[in-house]
Each structure stands twice: as C-alpha cells, then as structure tokens.
Deep mutational scan, measured.
Amino acid sequence: EWSVQQVSHWLMSLNLEQYVSEFSAQNITGEQLLQLDGNKLKALGMTASQDRAVVKKKLKEMK
C-alpha cells in the first residue's frame, strides 16, 4: 500500500524522475500504480516506449 510519495521515490529509483510531477498531480498511489497499463502510462505522459517497458517489467516483478 504505497503512498503517492513512495510511488515518486520508486520512479526516481528507476531514473524516471521526469514523470514524478505528473504521477503526483494525478495522485497515483501504489494500488493505482499496479493497475496501470501501457495506455494509462501514455496518458500520464510516459510517451517513450522504453520507459513504459521498464515500468511494466518492474510492476510485474512486484505483483
């Protein structure tokens, strides 16, 4: 059960800090993070497919 802050730290740990402000603005918590798919990541401004791939891979490892 991650807070928005913990999601931000997680993104930073993946060197994806450029997305922290948008994820925070949308109040993405750990629970919501686990529901994100490629389209939702795109909607959050994650347009680079490599970045989405990293996030999806890491989320899969956490589930």
Rank of each mutant, 00 (worst) to 15 (best):
E1A: 10
E1R: 12
E1C: 10
E1V: 04
E1I: 09
E1S: 14
E1Y: 12
E1K: 15
W2Y: 07
W2C: 00
W2T: 02
W2F: 06
W2K: 08
W2P: 05
W2L: 04
W2M: 08
W2Q: 02
W2G: 05
S3K: 09
S3P: 03
S3L: 00
S3M: 00
V4Q: 07
V4D: 02
V4E: 10
V4C: 13
V4H: 07
V4A: 12
V4T: 12
Q5C: 11
Q5A: 15
Q5G: 09
Q5D: 15
Q5E: 14
Q6T: 04
Q6H: 04
Q6I: 00
Q6M: 06
Q6A: 06
Q6L: 02
Q6Y: 00
Q6K: 05
V7T: 01
V7M: 01
V7G: 01
V7N: 07
V7F: 01
V7C: 02
V7L: 01
V7P: 01
V7H: 00
S8Q: 10
S8F: 01
S8C: 14
S8P: 00
S8I: 09
S8T: 14
S8G: 15
H9S: 11
H9L: 11
H9W: 10
H9N: 15
W10V: 00
W10M: 06
W10R: 05
W10S: 04
W10T: 05
L11Q: 02
L11R: 00
L11T: 01
L11G: 00
L11N: 04
L11H: 00
L11F: 03
L11I: 04
M12V: 09
M12K: 14
M12I: 14
M12H: 11
S13N: 07
S13L: 08
S13A: 12
S13Q: 14
S13F: 03
S13K: 10
S13W: 00
S13V: 05
S13C: 00
S13G: 12
S13R: 10
S13I: 02
S13T: 10
L14C: 08
L14N: 08
L14F: 06
L14A: 05
L14W: 01
L14G: 00
L14H: 07
N15W: 00
N15Y: 01
N15L: 04
L16Y: 01
L16V: 01
L16M: 14
L16A: 06
L16N: 02
L16P: 00
E17S: 13
E17Y: 07
E17T: 14
E17P: 07
E17H: 15
E17F: 03
E17D: 15
E17C: 09
E17Q: 11
Q18V: 07
Q18T: 12
Q18W: 03
Q18E: 10
Q18A: 11
Q18S: 12
Y19N: 09
Y19T: 07
Y19W: 02
V20D: 06
V20C: 12
V20N: 10
V20K: 13
V20E: 08
V20Y: 06
V20W: 02
V20H: 00
S21N: 14
S21Q: 15
S21A: 14
S21E: 13
S21T: 14
S21I: 07
E22D: 07
E22I: 09
E22N: 11
E22P: 04
E22Y: 01
E22H: 09
F23H: 04
F23P: 07
F23Q: 07
F23R: 06
F23S: 07
F23E: 08
S24M: 14
S24K: 15
S24G: 08
S24P: 04
S24Y: 11
S24R: 15
S24W: 07
S24I: 15
S24V: 15
A25C: 10
A25F: 06
A25W: 00
A25Y: 06
A25K: 15
A25I: 08
Q26D: 00
Q26L: 03
Q26N: 10
N27D: 09
N27Q: 14
N27M: 08
N27H: 11
N27F: 03
N27S: 12
I28K: 04
I28W: 00
I28G: 04
I28M: 05
I28R: 02
T29K: 04
T29Y: 01
T29L: 00
T29F: 01
T29Q: 08
G30M: 09
G30V: 01
E31D: 11
E31Q: 14
E31M: 08
E31S: 12
E31N: 01
E31R: 13
Q32M: 11
Q32L: 11
Q32K: 15
Q32S: 09
Q32G: 06
Q32W: 01
Q32T: 10
Q32R: 14
Q32C: 08
Q32A: 13
L33P: 05
L33E: 05
L33R: 04
L33T: 04
L34R: 06
L34P: 05
L34E: 08
L34G: 06
L34M: 13
L34V: 10
Q35K: 14
Q35W: 01
L36M: 15
L36F: 02
L36V: 08
L36E: 06
L36D: 08
L36Q: 07
L36Y: 08
L36N: 05
D37H: 04
D37I: 00
D37A: 00
D37F: 00
G38N: 15
G38Q: 10
G38L: 04
N39D: 14
N39F: 06
N39T: 13
N39Y: 09
N39M: 11
N39C: 13
N39K: 14
N39S: 13
N39W: 06
N39R: 14
K40D: 11
K40A: 13
L41Q: 05
L41R: 02
L41W: 02
L41N: 05
L41V: 01
L41P: 05
K42V: 08
K42I: 13
K42Q: 12
K42A: 10
K42R: 12
K42C: 07
K42E: 12
K42Y: 05
K42F: 06
A43Q: 14
A43I: 08
A43K: 12
A43F: 01
A43L: 10
A43H: 11
A43W: 04
L44I: 05
L44H: 06
L44P: 05
L44Y: 04
L44E: 05
L44A: 06
L44Q: 04
L44G: 06
G45F: 00
G45M: 01
G45T: 02
G45D: 02
G45Y: 00
G45S: 02
G45R: 02
G45V: 01
G45W: 00
G45E: 03
M46F: 04
M46D: 04
M46R: 00
M46C: 05
T47A: 09
T47P: 03
T47H: 15
T47C: 11
T47F: 12
T47S: 12
A48S: 15
A48R: 14
A48K: 15
A48I: 06
A48M: 05
A48D: 15
A48V: 11
A48P: 09
S49G: 12
S49A: 15
S49F: 07
S49Y: 10
S49R: 14
S49C: 09
S49H: 15
Q50R: 14
Q50W: 07
Q50C: 13
Q50G: 12
Q50E: 15
D51L: 00
D51R: 01
D51A: 04
D51M: 02
D51H: 09
D51Q: 00
R52K: 04
R52T: 06
R52F: 05
R52V: 14
R52N: 00
R52D: 01
R52Y: 05
A53P: 03
A53C: 09
A53M: 13
A53N: 11
A53L: 11
A53W: 09
A53S: 11
V54N: 06
V54P: 01
V54D: 03
V54C: 05
V54Q: 11
V54L: 15
V54A: 09
V54T: 10
V55C: 06
V55W: 01
V55I: 13
K56M: 15
K56T: 15
K56Y: 12
K56N: 09
K56D: 11
K56P: 01
K57S: 12
K57L: 08
K57R: 14
K57M: 12
K57V: 07
K57G: 13
K57F: 01
K58I: 03
K58P: 02
K58L: 08
K58H: 13
K58D: 08
L59A: 02
L59H: 07
L59W: 04
L59M: 04
K60F: 12
K60W: 09
K60Y: 12
K60S: 13
K60L: 13
K60D: 14
K60N: 12
K60G: 11
E61L: 07
E61N: 09
E61S: 07
E61I: 05
E61W: 05
E61R: 07
E61K: 09
E61Q: 11
E61F: 11
E61H: 03
M62F: 11
M62E: 08
M62W: 07
M62H: 02
M62Y: 09
M62C: 07
M62D: 05
K63M: 12
K63Y: 06
K63R: 14
K63H: 14
K63E: 11
